[in-house]
Design a protein around this nucleic acid. Structure first.
Length: 262
DNA sequence: ATGGCGAATGCAATTCGA
């Protein structure tokens, strides 16, 4: 089974690129982030015609997540509140960033972690709190569901310096600050391992490149789109890689898809 | 250090992303 994650930066703008990529790659499950559209206007039909079930959780203009799956998924959950309740969730379901479902006995969780703007800003504090809520959510989800879990998405954090093209002086930079790395590490403590690092130990592999200043052509990127697996799945996984091809096309997303073969 | 680009909104210029 092939599972992919891709921040498409607007599904309506990227519709043809995503459709063509799905036609060329044998993907069973695609997790999308930054769909940037309300559910009523989501272009589900062309993807359904390609053979996918579509599960969407969107909002106007910002954020938004979705899962496309060739097989029907069960137990679809949107947001944090179905698992941890409205009180613990607080304001953190207002932005649509979490969708999850079960396929082949595996719970897949698709995440769009907040960007955080800059270290010390209000959005940065929001990001850290959001990650704390995520930790509670995943812990409880893990206890409630006796299945293996696959957590993927736009994580917006580079966990190690080798995940950044030039890690120098990035300790106070958004996406690589100590508190962000610490918060993500805490999330992973329920027993999640980075699938990409099972197969590739060296640096220079990135999933996002800034549109500006020729970021992609100079390979000035960050590896911020991740796939995390529980122990048994991690052992079984046969591949995990980034496909930079769609980033080369005209009018691309600034992120490339990450693919896992289970 | 700054700005550079691109999308959405809504129709010009602003906000947001990372």
């Amino acid at each position: 089974m092939k599972v992919a994650t891709w921040n498409v930066n607007s599904i309506r703008t990227r519709q043809e690129i995503v459709l063509n990529w799905l036609k060329e790659n044998d993907i069973d499950v695609l997790c999308l982030q930054e769909t940037k559209v309300i559910d009523e206007l989501f272009p589900s039909l062309p993807f359904q015609e390609l053979g996918y079930h579509t599960y969407i959780f969107g909002q106007k203009a910002y954020n938004g997540v979705a899962i496309f799956s060739k097989q029907e998924m069960t137990d679809i959950l949107t947001g944090f509140s179905p698992i941890i309740g409205a009180e613990k969730t607080g304001i953190f379901d207002e932005q649509k960033r979490v969708i999850s479902g079960v396929i082949n006995g595996i719970r897949i969780v698709n995440l769009y972690v907040p960007n955080g703007s800059s270290v010390g800003s209000e959005k940065y504090e929001y990001k850290l709190k959001w990650l704390a809520v995520l930790a509670e959510y995943l812990q409880l989800l893990r206890e409630k569901t006796p299945t293996e879990m696959l957590i993927c998405g736009d994580i917006n954090i580079a966990l190690e310096d080798i995940d950044i093209y030039n890690p120098k002086d990035k300790s106070n930079h958004i996406m690589s600050s100590f508190k962000e790395r610490e918060s993500l590490t805490k999330v992973l403590e329920i027993g999640l391992k980075d699938a990409f690092r099972k197969f590739t130990t060296e640096g220079g592999h990135f999933s996002w490149w800034d549109y500006r200043a020729g970021g992609f052509s100079r390979n000035r990127g960050w590896r911020i789109d991740h796939c995390y697996l529980t122990e048994k799945l991690y052992e079984k996984t046969v591949n995990c890689y980034i496909d930079p091809e769609p980033r080369k096309l005209p009018q691309p997303s600034d992120h490339a898809p990450v693919i896992m073969e289970l």
